[in-house]
Design a protein around this nucleic acid. Structure first.
Lengths: 230, 230
DNA sequence: TGATCTAATATTGTAGACAATAATAGCTAT
DNA sequence: ATAGCTATTATTGTCTACAATATTAGATCA
């Protein structure tokens, strides 16, 4: 008796592959997606491919226009701002709920995760890639700790994919690992103590800080390279 | 030169029709959706129908299991609570943003809307149905006033559909129209004055009140009639 | 009688062909 | 030479048919 058979469908598998291609920029921003071509590349027919594209659309990684086709979204400064505004609200809520809903064991795991991050940062002098993934882990953990299924879906689903995409395509790794770690530590403590309001407040400030950091660097770096808009 | 041609596709049209059927309960909670049957009913083939179902899935009105099929979601007390937690956060944010981003004209329209609601409530002694739609209008207006496209999509899209579904199926019309109107009035004033934080705070309290009201009545009324789980 | 296996049926997943719409290239007229 | 129209091509939308999986009903055996 196996639990949760890894049963899946072509559409889902191909969707995942395309998501990856979009996030990494293998398929460029603004690029037109040709159905027969994509189907051929992935070795499936247009039926499941179109279903995959429906999923991509609901994730807002592509936009579709009837009778015309689908294009990969164009990342913009404004949209990233929108995403961070929403994240601040929702992750604040998640932290608040987590402070109340997380079990003792879950809180313990969060602390362990944090300690391993600390060790990592000290060892590697804050090497960026793992730091990023560590950040994702921490937030992921709290979001799940909220026990609000819909909230989990929203944050851990589409929204994080977009955040990853921005980080990838703009090479926006954090340049403040120690500071972020300290903030994580504060949030973790608040959750351990069950201080809901403090956890929420700290999380909102944390994300606000991250936003300021990332926005600032985005402006400096490069004003959005747009893909083939043709 | 017509703007925004009402160009559409079978999948979208049928999707809208099914959404309506699900919200009104014509298709019951938990009911299995049979693809050939649904396709026949709506006079289309399974291709577009499956695309419509993909959309329904992304709205979380149905759940699909590979090789097994799709079922309408089961509404539950817990999920409604989840939705209201999220709404409180996001609509609070929307009100905050709207206080800053709404134009003078938009603020004027919001006030006009409110006045027409007041008149309606006085005239009809708070007749429920229109009051509900009025409530939706008010929130819809503010959400759009936030100018955050993603936030608009989240709130005015899937989430509102679910809220409507709960209201419909549990006959949860507001029994506190005067109170709600007063709260709307306060929110509107805060937005007019550009007081972001107050607007956010008032909106959160407003939704919290609405939640308490609705939850209380849900418990009294009927402990969730479940549809054919078979 | 009840449980388990097996065959029949139904339903979902996928593929390929056709229809309708949009994009393109070439031609005509001014 | 260029603007506008027309024919051609390409792409999306839809339908029908087939394959794979799940469900059901019946038979067999303890």
């Amino acid at each position: 008796m196996r639990m949760q058979e890894e049963i899946t469908t072509l559409a889902k598998k191909v969707c995942d592959r395309i998501v990856k291609d979009i996030i990494t920029g293998t398929i460029a921003q603004g690029q037109k997606l040709n159905e027969p071509e994509l189907a051929r590349i992935h070795g499936i027919s247009r039926g499941p491919l179109r279903e995959a594209m429906s999923r991509l659309e609901s994730m807002r990684l592509i936009t579709r226009t009837p009778n015309i086709g689908a294009r990969v979204v164009n990342l913009s400064y404004e949209e990233l701002l929108e995403i961070y505004q929403i994240r601040e609200s929702l992750e604040g809520l998640a932290a608040k709920l987590a402070a109340k809903a997380m079990t003792v064991e879950e809180k313990g795991n969060l602390r362990l995760l944090l300690n391993s991050h600390r060790k990592h940062i000290l060892d590697t002098q804050g090497q960026s890639y793992f730091q990023q993934e560590g950040d994702v882990d921490f937030h992921y953990c709290i979001v799940h700790g909220s026990k609000n299924k819909r909230l989990i879906d929203m944050l851990a689903g589409d929204l994080y994919q977009l955040v990853r995409m921005y980080r990838y395509q703009f090479s926006l790794s954090s340049n403040r690992p120690q500071q972020a770690l300290k903030e994580h530590d504060q949030i973790c403590s608040a959750i351990e103590e069950g201080d809901e309001d403090l956890a929420e407040w700290l999380m909102k400030r944390h994300i606000n800080n991250a936003r300021n950091n990332i926005m600032q660097r985005m402006q400096i770096q490069s004003p959005i390279q747009d893909g083939n808009t043709q």
